[in-house]
Design a protein around this nucleic acid. Structure first.
Lengths: 325, 325
DNA sequence: GCCATTCATACCACCAGGGTATGAGTCGGG
DNA sequence: CCCGACTCATACCCTGGTGGTATGAATGGC
């Protein structure tokens, strides 16, 4: 009789714990409800612990269930990361997979790659261009080996090194009355649609790094691909490519806060970039999975740090987790 | 047909990768060799990657295999930690499990516990007294929630906060000629048997924290329990309890480097404690699993930091990994 | 009090995973 | 150079775990 917890059981439990409904969880898992119920019960029996409190009307997590949900997610991430990294390492010439969002490199990418290729441990670099907030998960999932990304980001299981800090600007429609002013403060923008949780800057203070922060919801809002028309105002829609953002900014539908280097790279007649005096700066970081200490990654981090060194300003607080990350 | 990697397969692969021999690995796993061979082959097929190069005479790891071994160990650790933490969280009154080595608290434990119990989030504390080097693994395995331990230690997947730094002394047999001197330097001790990799202080500089450090062997030397007679000189024997160490020090069999607070707590006529002018100090840390951010742990860390605050000296370099950790 | 909803139980069927027997390739010794 | 030992792979069988279907039982709303 069964000793070990299996990955399958972890997936089952996570599904039920997320749905809090055996029927829906079973549907999501592509199976029938009775074997799912049985699996969970068997899991509980082996753990010697009740994870879920069930009545026929309601399913709730126990304290142990909440703890197990958190740890099960971590474990599942570790398993899939192992799988992905092995797949990549098995390729004939496994390059270094660098995850970043296009243009979010503070103009350093060419010099970093140059410096990197002069390192002894250098291997070819595969660029993985992703949307905002996809870099850190890609590292965790084993899909990338190293990333360039702006802080703050969710740095669970990641190590990082700040590279450069630069101001962020507000991108406004040129026709916007605010564009007439040479500089703004955040309060000027109250009521505007701000992308990507930037609204939090106006509302709450940033969550502090450290212990005791409540666990954050991890689910990303789903991104409808190939949408037509602007999203409803006030939605926390996430924009994957700059063209889309530019269009919406030009239309006055949103305000956007790009780092200075990104703005400088995209002058555009319909868009005005303005200083925001009380908007915190953006810090570009290099990040990598904590337990991954390959020579190729180390060389990349060295190269990036060396290139950035002259411009380095220490970042006062790297916020590890935020709802919008 | 193939969906997911399973924990069983990870265990199988780790066994084979460690033994580099299917027969022995099968024996270790308590199964026959053919199904083990088949499982590994099936795992490779699903990964699309060759993990092991086999001839009938020799089994070797491929590059992908080495990467997968590292990640598989991490994943297995995560699974067992999830299991253990759930078991503990399911107990009727789950206390905070504090791992430490007896006496290695720099005299702070009573005050830390006092301060902790005044915290709102405080729960009863279960003390887990372990030998040297067992604290960090206990945190990783989900057997403890928080630990007090001296740096350096293997801090993979752990967060830590330094508490106090204090000098270490040399414990010598009172009859030792060196005991006549008021203070020593490490060079005086060349050729002595030093426990727990302290010899590294004499030989190589400490490995630097950071990337690119080669992966370290993780296997602890096995500790024969209930040994009789002193171990052979030069062995990297690990000593579990102080009584054993004292006996060996008194006999002049070893030299030992306890933190000052430990020495002060154990005055003993047969043993002389002497300053070692070039021996680095010891820093007591509080450590906890990185992803575990419970209120009880946060409260404990706060309490420990508050108690230690007056005495806090920053530690210059926490060495994350060492052979002796 | 009835009915809809939802989790648990009962029972069945299939195949994944483990066992045994044996083949095949490789290295070493005579 | 051939033989034999060693070790991994293949062939085949069989058990039990895992999933499906049918149905019961309990809960909460109307």
């Amino acid at each position: 009789m069964s000793g070990d917890i299996e990955v399958r059981e972890l997936r089952y439990f996570v599904a039920v714990a997320e749905e809090l409904h055996f029927g829906r969880a079973a549907e999501r898992l592509g199976m029938a409800q009775p074997p799912l119920s049985r699996s969970i019960r068997e899991l509980e029996r082996r753990l010697g612990v009740t994870l879920l409190e069930r009545t026929t009307r309601r399913v709730t997590l126990t304290a142990a269930g909440r703890a197990f949900l958190r740890d099960a997610r971590v474990a599942l991430e570790a398993v899939t990361a192992a799988e992905q990294r092995a797949r990549h390492a098995g390729r004939p010439e496994p390059g270094l997979r660098l995850a970043m969002k296009a243009d979010y490199d503070a103009g350093l990418l060419p010099r970093i790659l140059d410096a990197y290729h002069r390192e002894d441990a250098a291997v070819p670099v595969d660029l993985l261009m992703g949307g905002r907030g996809e870099q850190a998960p890609a590292l965790r999932a084993g899909l990338a080996d190293v990333a360039l990304l702006p802080a703050p980001f969710d740095d669970r299981d990641l190590d990082h090194e700040p590279l450069v800090t630069e101001p962020r600007l507000a991108a406004l429609a040129a026709a916007d009355p605010l564009a007439a002013r040479p500089s703004l403060v955040l309060a000027d923008l109250v009521g505007r649609v701000l992308p990507d949780g930037a609204a939090a800057h106006l509302a709450d203070p940033q969550p502090l790094r450290g212990l005791g922060t409540a666990p954050q919801p991890r689910r990303l809002p789903t991104v409808p691909t190939g949408v037509a028309g602007p999203p409803p105002a006030g939605s926390q829609q996430r924009y994957r490519d700059l063209a889309q953002i530019f269009t919406l900014v030009e239309l006055g539908a949103i305000v956007w806060f790009p780092p200075e280097s990104v703005a400088r790279r995209h002058p555009r007649s319909g868009i005005a970039y303005r200083e925001v005096r009380d908007l915190g700066p953006s810090t570009l970081c290099v990040a990598w999975p904590r337990q991954l200490r390959s020579a190729a990654v180390a060389a990349f981090v060295r190269a990036a740090a060396a290139v950035a060194a002259p411009a380095l300003k220490p970042v006062s607080a790297l916020i590890p987790v935020s709802d919008s990350a």
